[in-house]
Write a protein that binds this DNA or RNA. Structure first.
Lengths: 210, 210
DNA sequence: CAGATTTTGGATTGGACAACCCATTTTTCA
DNA sequence: TGAAAAATGGGTTGTCCAATCCAAAATCTG
């Protein structure tokens, strides 16, 4: 695997319903395993077994591990955004921001502070050895940031927030990522809570009805 | 490698001056390679070659790759703290905090935003598969956080800061880590700048001479 | 200086894993 | 319904790498 520029990109193939389902199962299994163990420790043999397919299926749907990895990053980005989607719509009030914060903390508690951020963990692992995967993770974060910014922008447009929504959104995402990393390493949720609370307080200080 | 509970801990051996120097060279080479490529992609053959030693030396000084990894985490923690040490002493004023912020940004620029945080990257990679290494990285962060807290505590003790220095230090470290991760993935320094600026503004808002 | 200990060299082994192959079965669709 | 395409099964291969071994050289210490 490692650095691969362009070759091996699978051409759009015609997939039957069954084929799509099998492909999906492989990606989901790979995502789970890469999340639990990291990319390099998740072997294709593990993926194969977890997905309940034979070795040739994996290579039938993906030209190599790299291509599977890219699919996993895409899949995790979508999962992370989907999970938060109901909360994103309400990020245009301090109450909504606090509910979002609470949900993130709750979720980490449920996971016993394991795993960290699916995008962040993958991104960190591949950043220096795999340019394509790095860009995929970066683009996941761009989408995430845009969702946060959208709420802050709405507050700003209503005249309830002064301060740059772009910068506040980026800073909030950074605080979240750093909080998740420290939480993952310390196995306690406090770093995430404190990081998000500080950033929300910072935002609140810029609201007109502060 | 992977999960190893206790066995293989090298008993304190008597090292000659030459032996100490060789050991140091191995750790430094391993630290560099693991920083550039990650733990799993840095093979002992690479380390061996980079350190200019033979394969048996590596196993003479470390019982296995796991033990070398732990030494590397220790080494990187010390490096990161040593590098900032002159700045830590001045974290008890807003000017000192800003100089610290500027130095971190400068440093990332010099690295072309590559590599991220030496502790954070290692920690993220090993967090879910290697409890001992996870704890080592976590303890590195504890020391880092303590250094930041010490400055804020001094401000607090002088009555120039209200707000919990512990929480502010932890939130600042989280913002820094998140900023570094996003900077590493996007290959631009803005996320780090914005994240640190937001946190410093948050701290400034709690100073009496705000 | 001599015996013991530490340090070094290079070759080897055993296992793991990504990637490939061919044959067989199932599904599609004309 | 029958030929083409897609999906599946499982074995194989070649490489890479952590870890081990057997000496030999350098260094320490009494």
């Amino acid at each position: 695997m490692g650095t691969r520029t362009e070759a091996g990109r699978r051409p759009e193939r015609k997939l039957t319903r069954k084929g799509q389902e099998t492909r999906r199962r492989i990606v989901a299994a790979a995502a789970q395993l890469m999340y639990e163990r990291g990319v390099t420790e998740a072997t294709l043999e593990d993926v194969r077994a977890a997905a309940g397919v034979s070795s040739s299926q994996v290579y039938h749907y993906f030209s190599d591990k790299q291509e599977l990895l890219l699919a996993v990053i895409e899949y995790q980005t979508q999962s992370v955004l989907d999970m938060q989607e109901p909360l994103f719509a309400e990020l245009d009030t301090m109450e909504g921001l606090r509910r979002w914060r609470d949900a993130l903390v709750e979720y980490q508690l449920r996971l016993q502070c394991r795993g960290g951020c699916p995008i962040g963990s993958l991104g960190s692992e591949v950043a220096e050895t795999n340019p394509e995967a790095r860009l995929a993770a970066a683009s996941g974060f761009v989408r995430w940031e845009a969702a946060i910014r959208s709420g802050l922008q709405a507050m700003h447009d209503r005249g309830e927030l002064d301060g740059d929504p772009e910068e506040l959104a980026l800073a909030t995402l950074a605080a979240l990522q750093g909080g998740l990393l420290l939480t993952q390493l310390q196995r306690e949720v406090r770093p995430l809570e404190v990081a998000l609370d500080a950033m929300l307080a910072h935002i609140a200080a810029h609201t007109t009805r502060g």
